[in-house]
Write a protein that binds this DNA or RNA. Structure first.
Lengths: 343, 343
DNA sequence: AGCTGCGGGACAATATCTGTCCACGCCATA
DNA sequence: TATGGCGTGGACAGATATTGTCCCGCAGCT
């Protein structure tokens, strides 16, 4: 990588070109087949520039063009993969990761360049990286908790399956939440199990039950078993949300949302609400993973991107030093900014 | 270095820029202080291009400009040094070295990019590299033979002195040859001794002596001692010449030159003439290192550059498998071409 | 004192880049 | 089977950069 730094000083133009072509190649990979115009729209590049670069990349055999649009070639994919660490280095991601890890005082931080809010590709890359990380830390015999949400759905979706059979059980970490089947913890747990080669259990507890109904439902054998598994969970993979958006999404009454916010709630994770210091403000009424159990977990993988989640990430990171965080550049830089301003 | 190959495919323009700036920086180092115009003359670049690059390099803090011309800064020297292997890689030097080593079947080949005939800088770099190599293989107690010639003079000149004291004796490998003191084996041996921290002996045997005179002179004590050292030589550092140019330089009668050439002589080294297969054609009448002794030497370092010496290098390389060859790109490519055509 | 080679300013000529057309092919849909 | 949408690739004028040159004032050298 010193080579790169050298090139930075002696041929900075090269870095620009590199970045441009990398971005184009990557965007094609994730959107193929795609046309010149939509490509320049997505990237915010001028159409003509895109066109020139595309011609170049085709000549290099990295992509193909036909009447449907542009496709990446195998060669292109290989090149793109080699380019990933280079792009990260250029963007200063490794330095950011070290800084953030220290700042949040957690086990590991992995950052994807860009903003997952603007670009679905970044979210998908976060999923890919999470997939790799999970494969590394998961052990046979583990009971693995899973939460819902669109980020977690993307992670599940981008999981790269392999042929290894794993003796692992995936289980939703909490009941409740979600009209959309795709982003429900249950479906996500199923996808994980399928791609990682394990089994899964479901946990169906409707939202907003009264206390009596909840107590009644807990007596159900299936649910009992699931709750038992949750109590013995070895690992948790979860998304982090903003308190306000999550409260609204759960259709809490406006006054309740108001109250949470006024009490300083910024983060939501597995049904609990926290202020920026990690103090629990409120717990959503359902069954599942308790805060105490969470704090004692040895393997926790949090996935969250986008600048707007910066506070939420800070809050959750205080809860467990063993946390592994996968996030994006936008969130990372916002977190640093917030903490810098605070000091 | 895979980074470089990647950049080659995805941003070849970058390589061009890199090369241009590298060459400019290097030329300034070797010619400072130098002006924009002479610089573009030497490099064969357009003056304007040089000017732009120079402005860039100054902004990067790699060179300084004052009314006398341009100088490289410390930062620039550091950058240039890091750039050396990159430039070599771009030029495909490492591959060339491997090829040539196999082809000539000798111990080691070291190639400098460029042509030492066109550019004094290449010759000087050859000297620098030779200096490094010699430092690595020289042992305490060694008796080291030295030949004359402009190449050897350059090597001696570019030798980077260090503070290590070495218990080493440098000695001219052969008597005779040379009107120019600078390029005589005697002076070169002295320079080596001074820079490497050893001692040296001289060997004065005038050119073109008759047999009787030679026999007489050998009885001299000093010369006897020197000849004895030569017989016990451990290492030889020598230049390789073309048979024709060396014959002329020695002022041999034209019919003798004709005869040598017609008998296939292409190479000259330490007073011996060889055809391309390494067969000795003739030996210049003087005293010193014999062919047999040379063939048995364990440490032989040959320095020769320029396409015109290709045949000579091929010839000499057949004589001793232990040879280490320092040459330039022009000679290396010519050698490959010659051998390819022969097969 | 006169000459040479230096950097840097200026500027017209030229090449390259940029933005925007359009023609035409293929798909999906009606 | 017509049609609208999205694709490529060709074309080209206007905007921008690059390039080749010349000149100026200055300092060192002879």
């Amino acid at each position: 990588m010193e080579v790169l730094d050298l090139i930075k000083t002696i041929a900075p133009e090269a870095i620009k070109i590199l970045e441009e072509r990398y971005l184009i190649l990557r965007t094609i990979l994730y959107n193929q087949p795609i046309g010149r115009r939509s490509l320049s729209d997505i990237l915010g590049f001028k159409e003509r520039a895109v066109r020139d670069q595309v011609v170049f990349l085709r000549n290099q055999g990295l992509l193909k063009i036909d009447f449907m649009g542009m496709y990446i070639t195998d060669e292109g994919i290989k090149t793109l993969e080699s380019l990933n660490p280079i792009y990260n280095h250029i963007k200063g991601i490794p330095e950011l990761e070290v800084k953030l890890k220290k700042l949040l005082n957690i086990r590991k931080v992995s950052i994807l360049p860009g903003n997952s809010k603007d670009s679905g590709m970044v979210l998908r890359d976060m999923g890919k990286i999470t997939s790799k990380i999970i494969k590394n830390i998961i052990n046979n015999g583990d009971i693995v908790g899973i939460t819902g949400g669109s980020t977690m759905a993307a992670v599940a979706e981008e999981f790269v399956p392999d042929k290894i059979k794993r003796d692992v059980i995936f289980i939703p970490a909490r009941g409740g939440l979600g009209r959309n089947v795709e982003t429900q913890a249950n479906s996500i747990a199923a996808t994980f199990a399928k791609k990682l080669g394990g089994t899964y259990r479901l946990l169906f507890v409707p939202d907003g039950l009264e206390k009596e109904a909840l107590e009644y439902i807990i007596k159900n054998e299936d649910i009992k078993e699931s709750l038992n598994l949750i109590d013995n969970m070895d690992m948790l993979i979860f998304g982090i949300g903003r308190a306000d958006t999550m409260a609204k999404r759960r259709n809490l009454p406006p006054e309740r949302v108001e109250e949470l916010i006024s009490r300083g709630a910024v983060a939501e994770a597995f049904g609990h609400y926290f202020d920026i210091n990690g103090k629990e403000i409120w717990e959503y009424k359902t069954v599942g993973l308790s805060l105490n159990k969470f704090k004692k977990l040895n393997n926790v993988v949090a996935v969250a991107g986008g600048a707007e989640k910066a506070e939420a990430i800070i809050a959750i990171a205080t809860l467990n030093e063993n946390m592994v965080l996968i996030t994006d550049e936008a969130a990372a830089r916002k977190i640093l900014k917030l903490v810098d301003n605070a000091t």
